[in-house]
């Protein structure tokens, strides 16, 4: 085990659906701000979180423009968390389940995200100080 704290998280929820993904990002923010090394294994819908083709939009129902809507994009949060970790001498290794990504057409992600398999989750968790699985229903 390294001297630096390493934590592994598994997330299965896609963005814009459940408060779980928000809580997950809040947890990552704390760990990244402390300079911990963080591993993320995104499984099933979780692979959408760093999808690079997410786009802001206006909201015709609310009558807001694109600027007024100021729609949050999880891909930018992923990017920012990777930067926060770096600024604090930590690191985020984000692994998207390759099979889950292919099924969903997630062919482009933000920089710093790689493809992997559930075996990577086992390897990452085994090499970590602790792990948290945020399971969906």
């Amino acid at each position: 085990m390294n001297e630096k704290t390493t934590l592994t998280f598994a997330i299965m929820d896609p963005p814009f659906e459940s408060a779980r993904s928000t809580t997950f990002f809040r947890l990552l923010n704390v760990a990244a701000s402390r300079g911990y090394n963080i591993n993320v294994f995104a499984y099933e819908g979780g692979v959408h979180l760093p999808f690079n083709k997410q786009k802001r939009h206006a909201n015709g129902v609310h009558g807001t423009t694109l600027e007024e809507e100021n729609h949050p994009l999880p891909k930018e949060w992923v990017n920012e968390l990777i930067n926060i970790a770096k600024q604090n001498n930590g690191h985020i290794e984000w692994v998207n389940c390759g099979l889950c990504a292919d099924e969903r057409g997630i062919d482009e992600t933000v920089s710093g995200v790689r493809r992997g398999s559930p075996a990577d989750f086992w390897k990452l968790a085994s090499a970590s100080d602790n792990s948290l699985v945020i399971g969906t229903r």
């Binding site: 704290t5 934590l7 760990a31 100080d129 602790n130 948290l132 399971g135």
Partner: peptide
């Protein structure tokens, strides 16, 4: 604070969601 969850993880406490 949600930091308490990270504290728990960092201490190696078994943490279940």
């Amino acid at each position: 604070s949600i930091e308490n969850i990270i504290n728990s993880l960092a201490k190696g406490t078994k943490t279940i969601w």
